[in-house]
Amino acid sequence: MSHPPTPHPLRSLLSGPAVTPLDRLAAEGPSVVPELLPALPRKAGAALLGGGVVERDVGEAVAARVDLDAWRVCDAVGAVLLEEAEVDDETLVDLYLHGDLEERIIVLRALGLRPVTDGTVRLLEEAQRTNMESHFKAAACDSNLPLRAAAHAGFGSEGFRRMILKAAFLGLPEERLLDVERGADEELSRMLQDLATEREAAGRAIWPGTSLLIAHAPTAGSVARVVGGLEHGDDRLRHAAARGLLRLNRRDLEPFAAERLPREPRPAIRELLERAIRPD
């Protein structure tokens, strides 16, 4: 594969023991990667990295974005290591399939700042199939990788929808799915609504991100679900419904916001409702 010409954006964040594995790579060559990778959590450290969202141009229509607040130092070292070793798809998949539980997280995190390839698609499918929650989170959360992968023929909108549906099924925080709304479409709305209905019928909680995402691509039943969410007793669901209402941006729905506003106790939700009511 061809790599972006710019240095890896996380390289400059690393120092001390975090650089030692990279030095060994430089000295011994890429054949040492299978031995370096499993040792990263204990040798480079597993403390949270921090630093917020970083972007990288990887030569695709959309820049790669990851949230470093969710990354550990060993994740960052792994991402740089795999790039400096110039691992190809075959090696990448091999490292994942023969990796231990932590190595798999590191490999999946690294994908967030790499161009999407056939190998990326293979590993996303593995993470999707595996349903090991820590691995699925590493693939789906804290980056816009699912969105970028949707532009790859091997993954496409279908792969994207399955991944987001699974995130909803697992109840993962929607704010950790970076830029997810940019991939919203009516079919995803239908799938999320069907999941919500199924869970309600079983007496279980629905995913709070539902109201927001379906408002980005409303289909039959979406508006009723968003409006109904304004009266939900769960603050998170009501907050998501208010955001959804704002996103729907429909004048004819403003009375629902006006009706809720005087009874809404949460300031953050009140603020959203006020924004949804436009002056005449």
């Binding site: 299978p34 031995e35 370096l36 990778l37 499993p38 040792a39 204990r42 023969h98 231990d100 932590e102």
Partner: peptide, 9 residues
Amino acid sequence: LPRYLEKSS
């Protein structure tokens, strides 16, 4: 073996 001897567990 060397690869597996570096696994964390």
